[in-house]
């Protein structure tokens, strides 16, 4: 088998990695501000956040195309301000990956921050600790198992994104050809060997990620629980 072009592997990792970092940070910030506060319109906002999880990726891609396309609101804005077009670039791959993986991170982070007793944070505040200190010394470490689960799931989802990517980024060899796209177009052109190669790689990656996550969470989720009660 001749696999001379490994660019899908590199591109997939690069875009999924960047998307995961973006989603990790925004997911945590939004989960922190929204999940714990009550305000009008909260349920609607949370439903919008979760929407990409249940919609067909083509619908997400359609929506993104609508926003970032030549006549789209953001597309026009970027074109006029920076003379920059998102569609058919590897930035489009990142945007698609961010949108489809965000719900997984948001959900994990919101659950992670609710998993421990909020009086643990209050106790730290009564001892004079600032919000920043409480977040880094108390909230983040206590939520970490859940946050890491969200991180791994988001990365796996970003790595596997196909529908929205194809709609927004298209299939341009060496530019937007992530592994899932490479598989589809290899099959379409009858190159089953190449398709098999990428399938084996992505299955291995996904399987390893899930296996490691299960092992890790079993080991760590129960770390601080009271064994004497």
């Amino acid at each position: 088998m001749d696999v001379t072009n490994l660019s899908p592997l590199w591109l997939s990792f690069k875009t999924a990695g960047i998307a995961t970092i973006i989603v990790f940070i925004t997911g945590i910030i939004l989960a922190r501000f929204i999940a714990r506060n009550a305000f009008p319109g909260k349920s609607i906002l949370e439903a919008i956040f979760m929407l990409p999880l249940v919609l067909p990726p083509t619908v997400v891609g359609f929506g993104l195309l609508y926003l970032f396309g030549k006549n789209g609101f953001l597309g026009k804005l970027l074109m006029n301000s920076f003379d920059f077009q998102v569609v058919f670039t590897w930035y489009a791959v990142i945007i698609s990956a961010v949108v489809v993986s965000f719900p997984l991170m948001y959900q994990s982070a919101a659950a992670a921050f609710q998993q421990y007793d909020s009086n643990i944070e209050n106790a730290a505040y009564t001892m004079g600790a600032s919000k920043w200190r409480v977040f880094w010394t108390i909230s983040f470490p206590l939520a970490w198992p859940g946050l890491l689960a969200g991180l791994v799931l988001s990365f796996a989802r970003a790595l596997g994104e196909f529908g929205a990517t194809l709609m927004l980024a298209g299939y341009i060899p060496n530019v937007t050809d992530t592994i899932p796209l490479a598989i589809y177009f290899a099959v379409e052109s009858g190159n089953m060997e190449l398709a098999t190669f990428w399938v084996v790689i992505i299955v291995t990656l996904g399987f390893t990620a899930i296996l490691w996550l299960n092992w890790w969470s079993k080991r760590n989720m129960m770390r601080y629980t009271d064994r004497r009660r």
Binding site: Y116, N119, N122, Y125, A129
Partner: peptide, 20 residues
């Protein structure tokens, strides 16, 4: 005055020790 500036010790029912 926010909690962290009140200088009040508060002992919670289940103690709320930092488990980590």
């Amino acid at each position: 005055i926010p909690i962290q500036h009140r200088k009040i010790g508060h002992l919670f029912q289940d103690y709320a020790l930092f488990p980590h």
